[in-house]
């Protein structure tokens, strides 16, 4: 039981508990703040997986952008002005059926993962991934990079156009 394992299980616990909070909490603001902890925990898992660039991108884009948008969405689409914004769920029958089917899916996935003998390459020495990712983006994935930039521009112009009151 070294430090890597302790930190790994800590982040895994944060991710799973707060994700359950997102799915099961009645109040939507609590769900939104649970989502904050989920994103932070996933960023921590990325750091443990030697992905420094993706971890920082996760914090900047998800927590700095997407979460703010979602909280604004929660506040703009309700008639209340306090923490009592609630989200209804479907009926009990659908709830139980959905629970059973998702548990079956999760069990099938986990059993499959436990039974596969993955071929693993040795992990090289720890080094920064920023420079190789930049080189890959400017050479092999240059077209996809540009298309993603244009897509983001179009999506944001379209979102502003759709959301504007006539």
């Amino acid at each position: 039981m070294n430090w890597y394992n302790i930190v790994f299980y800590l982040f895994a616990l944060i991710v799973l508990v707060s994700a359950a909070g997102v799915v099961f909490s009645r109040k939507m603001m609590y769900a939104a703040f649970s989502l904050l902890f989920t994103f932070f925990g996933v960023a921590g898992l990325y750091v443990l997986l030697n992905a420094d660039f993706i971890a920082v991108t996760q914090i900047m884009v998800y927590i700095g952008g997407i979460l703010i948008l979602i909280i604004f969405g929660v506040m703009l689409t309700s008639k209340f002005t306090d923490l009592e914004i609630k989200s209804g769920t479907t009926g009990t029958v659908q709830y139980v059926l959905a629970g059973i089917s998702t548990i079956i899916v999760a069990a099938a996935l986990i059993i499959m993962y436990l039974n596969v003998d993955w071929v693993q390459n040795p992990v090289p020495e720890l080094e920064s991934t920023v420079k190789p990712i930049g080189i890959l983006l400017m050479t092999k994935y240059f077209l996809a990079f540009q298309v993603a930039a244009i897509l983001l521009l179009l999506a944001f112009i379209g979102a502003a156009k759709i959301a504007r009151r006539k």
């Binding site: 895994a12 799973l16 997102v22 989502l35 929660v74 689409t77 989200s87 998702t102 999760a106």
Partner: peptide, 29 residues
């Protein structure tokens, strides 16, 4: 396994929640 459990929680949220914003949050999961 963490990914699988997170995926299942997200699918459960998409199926059972009524509010569109909650469906978006589950999709992020």
């Amino acid at each position: 396994i963490i990914g699988a459990i997170l995926f299942s929680l997200g699918v459960f949220g998409i199926i059972t929640r009524k509010n569109a914003i909650m469906v978006l949050m589950s999709m992020e999961l």
